[in-house]
Amino acid sequence: MAGTVSALGEFEQVVLLAILRLGDEAYGVTVREVIADRTQRRPTAGHLYTTLDRLEEKGLVASKFGDPTPQRGGRAKRYFKVTAKGVAALARAQQSYQRLMDGLKLPGVAHA
């Protein structure tokens, strides 16, 4: 289990959460927008697509191509979906963070 959790990097978790948040509308542009809106960081195209490919190779996301659209010059969108394995890996990673955070007070940060 520890191996799986450590294999999921911080940006991979961010991408998985963005895809989950978008539901059926998760493709390159919207994933990048959600990450930018929610984390105030703008991932480069290279960083985002290599991460998405890596997550797909690990079996944590699945992708399928939509229909070609004229506003994209007749190019299809590649839609992403988090797999059950991806949800489980994300849950484990988040639980690990939570266990590490339990009872910990970060200096200068307000706690609920």
């Binding site: 390159g28 542009v29 703008r42 480069t44 697509y49 994209r72 010059g73 190019r75 299809a76 969108k77």
Partner: peptide, 25 residues
Amino acid sequence: ATVGDLLEDPLHAGALRFWAAVLFA
């Protein structure tokens, strides 16, 4: 699909940004 995303995304509207994104990707 990647090129379609870059064309659609307003962040890569300029030629320089578009090509920088393509080459970096």
